[in-house]
Simulated scan of single mutants.
Amino acid sequence: MQEYGYFLTNGYEDVMLHKKEAKNKYEENDEVEVFLYHDHQGRLSATETMPTVTLDSFSILKVVEVKRSLGVFVDIGIQKDMLLSKDDLPYDWALWPAIGDELYCGLKLDKKQRLFADLSKFEEIQELSIVAPAESKNTEVEGLVFRFLEDGVSILTSEGYLAYLHKDEMKEQVRLGQRLTMRITFVREDGRVNVSTRPLVKEARIEDSDRLLTYMKERDNQMPFTDKSDPEAIKKEFNISKAAFKRAMGKLLKEKQVEQKDGMTFIKS
């Protein structure tokens, strides 16, 4: 032990475990499990703090720094942030992740045995996905952009749906790692979905308003929901967002098909 830490060995190579990276006090010949990485000066170092990802796993990692000459740095849960090389990022800087964006990443070793962040492959992310139900059409979802394609991007939604956003359905250009709020426009036979970030189309508003009318007709021409109702209650009952509900309700109110009173909505006779 030195004043500033411990020297560890596996019998072939020595490495420093700094005091601030040690969770306990140790004596000579004690065994300790550590994670090895190269510090900011390129020296092999040890820490008892285990990273959130390894060479055999991946996770969602937050971007904490962007350097155009190198790439982007992501937080893996240890003192040193890990570099995702510019060689693994889009050629166009405008498509790079921004600070605060999130990436599906693991770790990899280069030819010099240095650790780098590694973008997860489509097949890995696909294993996380689930089949989207047919009734999810026109619902609002959130998700992370994880891959660029020739005419759009791939997204994994918070629900676990694999989504495709065509460039013509983008309200504005999106970034790798950007979290988007989208509307499902089509549910494919394989359970994947097409999405759009553009405003809800007129047809969807009509479909939602017709659904609300049908719902009320089946319940004595009334329902305990208004445009001021709780978003979670609306989502649970109708599987649409509060915004979509308000658009549909607005159409019905404007056409004077319904009226609202005391937290209720009634079909006008």
Rank of each mutant, 00 (worst) to 15 (best):
I130F: 05
N194M: 08
E140N: 11
E102M: 15
E169W: 14
E124H: 12
R198W: 11
I184K: 03
E124Q: 11
L144Y: 06
L103R: 00
E135N: 15
L162G: 03
Q126R: 11
L119C: 10
R147P: 04
S136I: 04
K112H: 08
R198H: 08
R188T: 07
E203L: 12
S136E: 02
Q113A: 13
G177D: 00
R205A: 10
A132H: 01
G191Y: 03
T197M: 11
E203C: 13
R179D: 09
A204W: 05
S120M: 09
F186G: 14
E124K: 07
L156P: 03
T214L: 14
F186K: 12
F122A: 11
I206M: 12
P133L: 02
K167M: 05
K171M: 15
G160I: 04
T197Q: 03
E140R: 11
S209T: 04
L107K: 01
S154E: 08
E159Y: 03
K202G: 14
D168G: 06
D210N: 13
F186I: 14
G152V: 01
S158M: 14
V141A: 01
G177M: 03
E102H: 13
D210V: 15
E169T: 11
S136R: 09
V187G: 00
D190H: 04
S129K: 14
D101K: 05
V193T: 02
I206H: 12
K171G: 14
S136V: 05
E189H: 12
L109Y: 08
Y104I: 01
K137C: 13
S209Q: 06
T157E: 00
E142L: 12
E150L: 11
E172W: 08
F122K: 13
N194S: 12
S158L: 05
S120E: 00
R198E: 14
V141S: 02
S120V: 06
T181M: 12
D190P: 03
I184N: 00
A132C: 10
Y161K: 01
K217I: 07
D151H: 15
V193W: 03
E102G: 04
G191N: 09
S158G: 15
Q113F: 12
P199H: 06
S209L: 02
D110W: 06
L107C: 08
G152L: 01
K217Q: 10
V174I: 12
L162I: 10
L128Y: 15
P133D: 06
T139Q: 09
S196A: 09
V153L: 03
L144W: 01
E140D: 15
V174K: 03
F122N: 08
Y104W: 08
K137A: 10
I125H: 07
E140P: 09
V193G: 04
I125C: 04
F186L: 12
G160D: 06
D210T: 15
L119R: 02
L128H: 05
V145T: 05
D210I: 06
T139H: 03
Y104D: 02
L115F: 05
E123T: 09
K121A: 14
M170D: 10
I125S: 00
L200G: 11
R205C: 10
D101C: 08
E172G: 13
F116N: 13
